[in-house]
Simulated assay, not measured.
Amino acid sequence: MTINLIAAISKTNQLGYKNKLLTELPNDLARFKELTLNSICVQGRKTYESIIKRNEKPLSHRTNIVVSRNVNYHVHPSCYLYNSVDDIIREYEEYAEKEANVFVIGGKTLYQQFLPYADYIYLTIIDHIFPKADTYFPQFTLDDWKIIEHIKNKADEQHLYDYHYVTYKRKK
C-alpha cells in the first residue's frame, strides 16, 4: 500500500478558505483526477461535504473514505465511513492489495495525521499569496523528502497564476 498526500497550496502553504479551494486551476484539477482515478481517496468530513456540494456526488471511479469522529455521520451509500486514521491504516495494511494507492485529499487535520505514514506528497504550488486563507498545509522537513519531479507551468488565459507540480518521495 502506498500512501500519498495530494494538495494545491500557495507558496506560503495556504490550502483553503471557508472550506473551498483558494483558486481553481483546470490543469491541476485534471492532474488530480488522473493521479487519483481508480485509487482510494481519504477525505475529512468537511472536504467530503465540499465535494458533494460542488459535484452533487462523491468522486467517481474511486473508493471514497470519509473520516469523521461522529459515528452517526451519514455518507453516500458508495462511500465508507471511518472514525480514525489508525483504523484506516490498520485495515488497509491488513486487507488491501500491495499495489493499492491511497490518496489523502484533505483537510488539514488528515494531512497532519497521515504525514508520518506518507510515501509521496504531490503538491501543486501556486506562485501567489492569497489575501484570505484559514487552512494551511502542514509543514514538513525537506530532510525527510527528495524531490523526484518538478514541473513549472506559466499563467495563461485559464490559469491566473504560475504554478508548479512538485512531487516528493520519502527518503528511506
Rank of each mutant, 00 (worst) to 15 (best):
R45K: 05
R45A: 03
K46T: 13
T47Q: 09
T47K: 13
T47N: 09
T47I: 08
Y48A: 02
E49D: 01
E49V: 04
E49G: 03
S50K: 01
S50L: 02
I52W: 01
K53I: 07
K53L: 06
R54Y: 12
N55G: 07
E56K: 15
E56A: 04
K57P: 09
K57E: 05
K57G: 00
S60A: 13
R62S: 10
N64H: 04
N64Q: 02
N64V: 13
V66N: 03
V66Y: 01
V67I: 05
S68V: 06
S68L: 10
R69P: 09
N70C: 14
N70W: 04
N70T: 09
V71R: 13
N72Q: 06
Y73M: 08
Y73R: 08
Y73P: 08
Y73D: 15
V75K: 01
V75G: 02
V75H: 02
H76C: 08
Y80S: 09
N83F: 00
S84K: 04
S84G: 09
D86Y: 02
D87N: 07
I88F: 01
I88N: 04
I88Y: 00
I88S: 00
R90T: 15
R90H: 14
R90C: 14
R90P: 08
E91R: 07
Y92K: 14
Y92T: 13
E93W: 02
E94Y: 03
E94H: 03
E94N: 10
Y95K: 06
Y95L: 04
E97T: 00
E97N: 05
E99C: 11
E99P: 05
E99M: 05
A100Y: 00
N101A: 03
N101I: 07
N101S: 15
V102L: 10
V102Y: 03
F103Q: 05
I105N: 10
I105E: 07
G106Y: 12
G107M: 10
G107N: 11
G107H: 03
K108A: 15
K108P: 04
T109M: 04
T109A: 11
L110I: 07
Q112A: 12
L115C: 01
L115F: 06
L115K: 03
L115R: 00
P116N: 10
P116L: 05
P116K: 05
A118F: 01
A118L: 08
D119N: 14
D119G: 13
Y120S: 08
Y120T: 13
Y120E: 07
Y122D: 07
Y122H: 04
L123P: 14
T124R: 03
T124K: 01
T124A: 11
I125Y: 11
I125T: 13
I125Q: 14
I126E: 05
D127Y: 00
D127T: 02
I129W: 05
I129F: 11
P131N: 13
K132S: 15
T135S: 15
Y136M: 11
F137T: 06
F137M: 09
F137H: 10
